[in-house]
Design a protein around this nucleic acid. Structure first.
Length: 672
DNA sequence: ATAGGGTTAG
């Protein structure tokens, strides 16, 4: 219609405004800007924009970050006298605020002769979005003086700002003030509040908000604005982030499938991926695809599904999703998805696959670089990780604390002790990043892993802050690796004092004693665990087959092919004994819970998973195993031997790193 | 015709 009109020369400002508004509203600001240029450009057709034109085009400038264009429009508004229109003024303030230039916004705001509550709200929002909450709340006082009533938007903007920055408790505080001052919350307020609860894991307050929402939804019910669904989505997300995936799922189930939108599905998939069973996330994802109605996964959905794959090491599924991404061209949001792909490939044992994704990206950010480095680090390919770091430095992308955690982690798992020390020392001097407690933990790990326990202890003593549990666990596990009972006891004692002892630290200490043949101490630890009710998390390994995942616990006989699995395993053990394998019984007490069942060393989950992997894999195909805890020492020795007598490469991911077993050696080279 | 909200990565 518009084209026809403009060809006949009957289009006027109103028709141009209408078509431009349509582009803005359907989320195509680039075309809107092009049309605005055509409207105002040289030629036969040159229309003077009116106030509506400006109010239409300013948000478009803001949303693509076209600060310069916005400034030109601002100039035109002043020259043409349209600046006096309060709508125009508000749109200019908002445009500057959204472009991150609050000082300019404030200038304009102060020049406006007529202001309304929207003007004030635009300023409050602007300050809240960049985290300048003192300035935002300062405006509250000005508003009170000028007797401008704070409305629901004013309050919600600040609550949302706090929520987005993870400052949930301050958001809740503002909400309380809002209630005291008698403002009535609406759907947006509730969504912001729920997101605040989610960000700090405040389950109780989240439940309170849920109850409040039930009351409010009675009134909202029946309008088609989609507000109800948004609130419900936020409730599902809140429960998932507060580590209640079951409640989240029952809320999800309470929404009729036809009423769910992409966000509903994505929230639930992401909730399972991060706080529940990652397998359930993938199950839900394929359910969503089967729905085949108008539900199309967006970049968020894909990222969540890839997170689930990464957690499981589900390479086969991850590759399928990668193919889906390529087929469906998720270009516009490729950066995020590609970063998830790098992470997924790295964590699923295919770091070369991660590299291919990285090399094919046309845009990268620091997450892309660090994800790739993490991948190399986990696989013990420290030199390559450091090469990537050198390349990253050349890009000018910010090098922050996270980058150094990854660099030090890579050094630690490849035995690059001197380089690690060098990078640690360069953090402050060269990159102006203050080493945090997490970097000290990395250094303790680095020194400890390589056996320099005294040096590690010296570093801890010289720390400028209190060592946290992670530091002591790093020391403790180094004491296990290098059989240092005395220092191990000390580290365990420190953990006890910080009241953060968990099943892992008890197991480590018990292993240290067992290794030293101090069985009385082993028994003491065991009874201490029984007394305090600390249970060892059961070890669990899984293998991806063509028909889904097979999971094994220690001594597990639940698999239908159990008999065959045990036969294969027994056969392998016999064969490696013949070439020198001696069972390392000090690890037999690793699984203290199962002690009554006898010596289950030969039935550890990773051994069972390997036997099953051999059964289902074609010759020469790598076998990929994932374990929830660290691999047991005896299993590590046994699998090294087994790799000598079978044709498969064995790729095992434990909670610390990857082990590639091939021809009788492991890529970890002792750096667990 | 202007202001506020839900899902993703190291």
């Amino acid at each position: 219609m518009f084209d026809e009109m403009s060809q006949r020369g009957v289009g006027d400002v109103v028709s141009w405004n209408s078509i431009i508004a349509a582009y803005v509203q359907t989320g195509d600001p680039a075309t809107a800007l092009k049309m605005f240029d055509r409207m105002t450009g040289q030629g036969d057709f040159r229309l003077l924009p009116d106030a509506v034109s400006l109010v239409n085009i300013l948000p478009a400038c803001a949303s693509v970050g076209a600060w310069l264009r916005g400034k030109q429009v601002h100039g035109y508004a002043v020259r043409s006298g349209l600046f006096g229109d309060v709508f125009v003024g508000n749109a200019i303030v908002d445009m500057y605020a959204k472009c991150g230039s609050m000082d300019k916004a404030n200038n304009v705001f102060e020049q406006m002769k007529v202001k309304d509550v929207v003007s004030w709200n635009a300023m409050v929002t602007g300050y809240s979005q960049i985290g300048r909450f003192e300035d935002a709340l300062g405006l509250f006082e000005d508003m009170r003086e000028k007797e401008i009533l704070l409305d629901v938007v004013t309050w919600s903007a600040v609550i949302a700002g706090y929520a987005q920055r993870g400052r949930g408790y301050e958001a809740l505080d503002v909400f309380r003030q809002m209630r005291i001052r008698g403002s009535q919350p609406n759907a947006v307020t509730l969504v912001s509040l729920l997101s605040a609860c989610a960000s700090v894991g405040a389950l109780l307050l989240g439940k309170e908000t849920h109850c409040y929402a039930i009351k409010c939804l009675l009134y909202l019910d029946g309008n088609d604005s989609g507000d109800d669904l948004m609130v419900i989505n936020a409730i599902i997300d809140m429960y998932a982030k507060c580590k209640c995936p079951k409640i989240a799922h029952s809320m999800f189930g309470s929404v009729a499938p036809k009423d769910r939108n992409v966000v509903t599905w994505t929230i639930m998939i992401g909730g399972y991926a991060q706080h529940g069973e990652a397998n359930d996330a993938l199950e839900l994802f394929s359910q969503m695809l089967k729905h085949k109605s108008s539900l199309i996964p967006n970049a968020f959905t894909i990222s969540c599904a890839l997170m689930a794959c990464a957690r499981l090491g589900a390479l086969r599924m991850g590759r399928q999703i990668h193919a889906y991404v390529l087929r469906n061209q998720y270009e516009s949001t490729m950066l995020f998805v590609a970063n998830c792909l790098i992470d997924m490939y790295g964590k699923s044992g295919d770091v070369d696959g991660a590299r291919v994704v990285f090399d094919n990206m046309y845009q990268r950010n620091s997450v892309s670089w660090t994800s790739l480095m993490t991948g190399y680090g986990m696989h013990g390919r420290g030199e390559e990780a450091l090469q990537v770091f050198d390349e990253m430095k050349k890009t000018g992308l910010p090098i922050d604390g996270v980058t150094f955690v990854v660099v030090l982690y890579a050094c630690s798992h490849s035995g690059l002790v001197n380089q690690g020390i060098k990078y640690f020392n360069s953090m402050k001097t060269e990159f102006r990043v203050d080493p945090g407690v997490e970097h000290y933990a990395c250094m303790v790990d680095l020194l400890g892993r390589s056996g320099r326990l005294d040096q590690a202890m010296k570093l801890i003593k010289g720390m400028p802050m209190e060592p946290n549990p992670i530091v002591w666990v790093a020391l403790l596990s180094a004491c296990r690796t290098h059989a240092n009972v005395e220092l191990g006891e000390y580290a365990a004692g420190q953990l006890l004092e910080l009241e953060s002892e968990n099943d892992g630290s008890y197991t480590l200490l018990s292993n240290i004693y067992a290794n030293a043949r101090r069985w009385k101490d082993v028994a003491r630890i065991r009874s201490l665990m029984k007394h305090t009710g600390i249970k060892k998390r059961p070890g669990c390994s899984w293998v991806q087959g063509k028909k889904g995942t097979a999971t094994f616990f220690v001594g597990d006989r639940s698999h239908p092919q159990s008999e065959q699995i045990y036969d294969t395993l027994g056969d392998l053990i016999d064969r490696i004994k013949a070439i020198g394998y001696v069972p390392e019984t000090s690890f037999a007490l690793h699984d203290v819970d199962d002690e009554e069942k006898g010596d289950l060393l030969f039935e550890h989950s990773e051994k069972l998973a390997l036997a099953y992997g051999i059964l289902i894999s074609a010759p020469g195909v790598p076998i990929r195993i994932t374990k929830n805890l660290r691999v047991c020492g005896d299993c590590h020795i046994a699998i090294t031997y087994i790799s000598q007598i079978i044709e498969h490469e064995i790729i095992l991911r434990d909670s610390s790193r990857f082990h590639h077993f091939k021809n009788g050696s492991c890529s970890c080279r002792g750096y667990w």
